[in-house]
Design a protein around this nucleic acid. Structure first.
Lengths: 193, 193
DNA sequence: ACCACAGTGGACTCGACGGTCCAGAAAACC
DNA sequence: GGTTTTCTGGACCGTCGAGTCCACTGTGGT
């Protein structure tokens, strides 16, 4: 599929429009027709740019959103080299998900193309990158002698990832960020030793 | 709706059949027709016993499954009064979800009746009960002087709940229990001080 | 100017699924 | 035993949403 300038623009408009839509309203369940309406396109355009239809489109949107997840935590996530930096990161995560509230673009997407290999790959990649940032942060703190020696960066970073995911999950269901804060603070306390 | 003995049996058969189906196969997405086929009932029976249709039925199944979640952790979850008991609990949680693998009956149900108040209430109740068991365990360990004094049972139990949820979420996506183990072990280590 | 191909609109098909309806079987109750 | 209510089977309906098709328009190259 050779895309002209106009074509690329339309394709991008579809992805970003869908992403924006997911981030705003939307209780649960997006249809191609929703996206069509939101982005001011026609059926044929969607299938022109995403020949495999729903799955291909949703995966593209999911990748787009997955990128945002990490971007929204920058620059803090990329430089966890001091306790102050860790605190800032903690705050940015809490703020981001508090703002997002009960909506979860990625969650909604996964609800529709969940089981497919492509979807799992998107999530796995996101979690891996996320965890490796945290792991790197722990290792650096360790190298600087700021963290108890006995800690396994692999294990603790995995705990952070699981904790954040769970905190967000609880937020999605209850609307409260206390669990997210609790798990982050508890793990940070444990890091401090 | 006055139910006869036969009626109660049929109603129960529908709920348990649906629950069993969710626990076994099922990639994502259950239909009333699936349940009808599995349980050997007819359309009219389903709407006879669950007049509000899909939502009412799925909520009943969700309540049924939510009960199992806690039951499967007993008797350990109810008596977290020693480190050995905590270890047994940890193992039972890991074992339960390892066995469950990538299926998540409750998750599937939530994917279909997710946003409704009823669904959120089921989840909120489950999380509350779960957390209060853990909180009680922490308080008892504290009272027995087995845990560092400074800990806030509320906060740490919240962290445990978030951690387990997140660990399971990662398991669902990646198929690996390492995150669940990591977060449980890290939090236990933190409890030990 | 022409032509080939990308881009666009929108009507249409087709299947899936939730929900309705009614007629008949089986209990329960007197 | 007869009547009333519950239980059951399954045909039927309406809607919604993914994906197809084709006719038309714009664009870029020569």
């Amino acid at each position: 599929m050779a895309l002209t300038t106009k074509g690329r623009a339309t394709r991008q408009r579809i992805i970003e429009g869908a992403a924006a839509y997911l981030r705003s309203d939307e209780p649960a369940g997006v249809t191609l027709d929703d996206i069509r309406a939101i982005t001011g396109t026609s059926k044929s355009q969607i299938f022109h740019y995403f020949p495999d239809g729903k799955e291909e489109l949703f995966l593209a949107v999911a990748r787009h959103e997955a990128g945002r997840v990490l971007d929204d935590q920058q620059p803090h996530l990329g430089a966890l080299t001091s306790w102050a930096a860790w605190e800032r990161w903690r705050d940015s995560v809490v703020a981001r998900y508090r703002a997002q509230g009960r909506h979860c673009p990625l969650g909604t997407l996964m609800g529709q193309v969940g089981g497919t290999p492509g979807a799992q790959e998107v999530i796995a990649t996101l979690l891996n990158q996320w965890q490796s940032h945290v792991r790197k942060g722990i290792a650096e703190m360790q190298a600087a002698g700021l963290v108890r020696e006995g800690l396994d960066p692999d294990r603790v970073s995995a705990a952070f990832i699981a904790g954040v995911q769970g905190g967000v999950l609880v937020l999605l269901n209850t609307g409260s960020v206390t669990h997210l804060e609790a798990v982050l603070d508890t793990l940070l306390e444990h890091l401090r030793g």
